[in-house]
Design a protein around this nucleic acid. Structure first.
Lengths: 208, 208
DNA sequence: GTCTATAATTCGATAGAC
DNA sequence: GTCTATCGAATTATAGAC
């Protein structure tokens, strides 16, 4: 907020809350910490969002909605093709969140941490998170079964879990790794996506 | 604690604290919650451990020490061989924590969650955790470079991060997945290790 | 070693003026 | 919509008796 001031208060609180929840988790975040940094009154949070849980819900929804919609859109375009390929399905899954995060600059880095945090939140926060991602996840799980015949049900699910863990790994470790070995934080969407898709495709198809 | 009562108070507190830190994280864990479940006095924690951070430090040390020692011992036996293989190095890394967790039954399940939690803790807890795992991690990183010639420095590190994320994924998701598709929580160490090693070996060697 | 009692903070939430 | 003021609860940590 330098010039062009006047992002409305509600959005401003949302931005600060997003970063706090990402860094400290739900339990470790305090409303006082948020309002102090956002330089708003404590009652403003209650007025615009309600409780601390309601605020978290608003944060997760703003993040998850565009990602999930883009993933499903991309998936639909793939599964109508005659020869559906694992590589394309993986790309449809990996690219939307990575591209979104890349396009958002500093806020993208915050969202990366946030997604990592989502993996270890407990009830009732976990259900709140899962509600936003589960339908999309199930669609991809279904699609993957079509391109990976011959695997047991158990194998499907473990491969799928590994696929999920890889993107979480990238998003949460990206800043550390990039900075450690390239002296800056630059990375390209295509590089990252192909790295993830490559590792995952090989792991799913060529293991044993 | 049924018969054979009298685990000493210090160990008892440690056991309960381990589970609380695993489930709720450092910030989400309260000393009151621990002492209530352990049925000890609040002053007992201060007497035996000191502060909340000191208690966490005791928990992480008890868990990490035997795992890291076994991993390094296994690694040393591998790297003196004439033909070091990636598969063997990965097995040396994956098997000790998985075998330990399997052998510990219910407490092993708790330790799995705990390791997942470690991935998202913040300072000063993160440094406390990293201090215990970093030396071992660096040894494996070094060994892997010998068996993966031709990869860039950046590729090494990303592959290594993926390798780490896979075991964290397994440990934290194991209960959910196993229960969902086998109606029980049984799993065999060899099965899991070969699954992880297979996926990771393929991802590292056959990608692109 | 174990306990009670409590100090000193900090938290989430809300009432009510403007 | 925004603010001040504050309540009630929960937290870590400690002092001191036994």
């Amino acid at each position: 907020m330098k010039l062009a001031e006047k992002k409305d208060t509600k959005t401003h609180i949302l931005d600060v809350a997003e970063r706090h929840f990402a860094i400290y988790g739900f339990a470790g975040t305090t409303l006082r910490g948020i309002i102090k940094e956002a330089d708003v009154n404590v009652a403003a949070v209650a007025y615009h969002f309600g409780s601390k849980e309601d605020l978290y819900s608003a944060v997760i929804e703003r993040f998850a909605k565009p990602v999930v919609e883009e993933q499903l859109s991309r998936l639909r375009k793939e599964i109508v093709k005659r020869n559906v390929k694992l590589t394309n399905i993986l790309t449809a899954f990996y690219e939307p969140p990575i591209a979104l995060i890349k396009s958002m600059g500093k806020r993208g880095a915050t969202l990366s941490l946030f997604l990592g945090r989502c993996q270890t939140e407990q009830e009732p926060i976990y259900s709140m998170i899962d509600k936003h991602f589960a339908p999309c996840r199930d669609q991809f799980l279904l699609a993957m079964r079509q391109v990976l015949p011959g695997l047991s049900k158990k194998d499907y699910h473990w491969n799928f879990e590994f696929m999920l863990s890889l993107i979480v790994c990238f998003l949460t470790r990206q800043q550390v790794i990039s900075k450690r070995y390239t002296a800056n934080e630059n990375w390209q969407v295509d590089d990252v996506v192909s790295r993830l898709v490559g590792f995952c495709t090989a792991g799913m198809q060529d293991s044993k």
